[in-house]
Amino acid sequence: MIEFDRVSKRYPGGQEALQQVTFEQPAGELTFLTGHSGAGKSTLLKLIMLIERPTGGKVYVQGDDLNTIGKRGIPYLRRRIGMVHQNHQLLFDRSVFDNVALPLIIAGYGPDEIGRRVRAALDKVGLLNKEKLNPIVLSGGELQRVGIARAVVNKPPLLLADEPTGNLDPELSAEIMDIFKDFARVGVAVLIATHDMSLIARYPHRLLSLSEGRLITDRPEAVHGA
């Protein structure tokens, strides 16, 4: 689903954000990506989203070499990737429903199909009864779940999460993790960037660990964890 082949990224200032990173994540796997701030987690996610381009090596998504995707192809790549943000990135000028519907409107679905899919996604995160509300009245955990609903409403084969539990207490974090696990179970590749070590300790999933731009640990699911 995702494959990094000796990927390096040097920023114009000379900073080596990633060096020779190689790993592969199959469909249906939930993987943690960890490391200190500045270790390269964000850069790695940006390369998958084509917000940045690598200075060396190749990134593959669903077998497609991202180096061959031009500027015009970027939106279509992003439609295959669901992205969950730490600060949820919801728009407060519209309802929960309209927030979740945005990717579908962009992809060009009709109103009936949008209604069906948005409700299915909201049901999945347990917020079906809040579709008409403005996100501003929701709690932190609820906002994050709306963010997840928006990320998965288009049924992307790949889900990226950047510190999804960063602002949440352990109980809410567990709820969020359960949702991610459900998606992995149905075949979605889920990659969660986090520096929440307690979260990682509680879940026995695969762990990729970055330090100063290098992949220093790649522990598979069975070995690592409780």
Partner: peptide
């Protein structure tokens, strides 16, 4: 496993 949900092409 199967390739996962969501077709690559629209």
């Amino acid at each position: 496993r199967r390739r996962g949900p969501g077709a690559k092409e629209g």
